[in-house]
Computed example of a mutant assay.
Amino acid sequence: MADITTTLREVRPESPHASTLRLDLGAATFDYRPGQYIMIDPHQFEELVPEIREREAQRGKTMGPAYFSLSSDATDPKLIEITVKLGADGPPGMLPAFLLRKTEPGRAIRIQGPGGKYHLPEEPPPGITGFLHLCAGSAVAPNRGMIRHALARKWPQRHLLILQDRSESDHLFHKEFEDLARHHAGFRFRQVHSRAKQELLTVERIRTEASGFLDLTASWAFICGPNHPRPQGPGFVDRLRGALTATLGFTPDRIRTE
């Protein structure tokens, strides 16, 4: 993995609790595939040292780096983007809160990466006519980069993005996705709201949205979201992965998860 010092160029609000950070790579070379992640070590920020020491003393171990999915599309070799969100339930994480509330353009931020196997292939996969993107909340960030990259490179595959959010106030990239859908016939964007409307991303919804647009028998699926088990059953990723294989005929080699 590369170790690079970047410069924060812009903090762009995406929702009341999330913003996209644009990081300038300077003269550094940073090769990545859309969907991968970077790591940021909180020890580099002097303002956080007292809190880090306290937490490390309580836990009896060194605090490791935080992982952030790249939301950029790899079309600009001088810039990368990460989209950072504060937790909706409970206190915000130390590093996300610092990045969103305490950093300003011009700040140096050291990163490591890229890492991860959740990403687009280098070239359009032969025999695959579509990509099904199933995401929850801020986990749409890596898929945003994938979709933008493939559309910019004029890949032949169609993209169907179904995003599950709690409510409209949690939307990330909403206007951007609507604009992409207006300008690209090969991209379709749909949303469900788990709290505001008691909706869930289901097999029936996938079938409905894919009908006449995406051939599910010749598509890859990218699933990204929280995966902690709930009282009513498996987490988001496991539930949908099981549904795709059991009901929609997806084979494991056509499913990517994060």
Results as ranks from 00 to 15, higher is better:
E176R: 09
E46S: 12
L180Y: 03
L200S: 13
D165I: 11
V11E: 02
E122T: 08
D76N: 13
T62L: 14
S69V: 03
P105C: 07
G130D: 00
A210S: 13
K85T: 06
R239T: 14
D238G: 01
L120E: 09
L21W: 00
Q58Y: 12
E56K: 07
D215M: 12
T83I: 07
L8H: 05
L240T: 02
D24K: 07
M146H: 05
D24M: 09
D73I: 04
G106S: 10
G35V: 02
H193Y: 15
L132G: 00
P229D: 14
H174G: 06
G212N: 10
R254K: 12
T103N: 06
L134P: 00
A74T: 01
L100G: 05
A18T: 07
E258G: 13
P231N: 08
L201Y: 05
P229T: 11
D76P: 00
G130K: 00
V203R: 14
R205C: 03
L240H: 01
D73P: 02
L163G: 00
L151D: 02
S72H: 10
F187T: 04
R12S: 12
P124Q: 04
G115I: 08
F187H: 08
H174F: 13
K78Q: 15
G60L: 07
D76T: 03
D24G: 04
A18R: 04
P92D: 06
Y32N: 08
K85R: 15
P156L: 05
T129P: 04
A108M: 04
Q58R: 15
P77W: 10
S15G: 10
V203A: 14
D179M: 14
T217K: 14
H171G: 00
K85C: 09
T247E: 15
G87C: 05
E54F: 04
R110H: 13
V84D: 02
F68G: 02
L48C: 12
S19K: 08
F250C: 06
L244R: 04
H133M: 12
H119T: 06
E56N: 07
G130S: 02
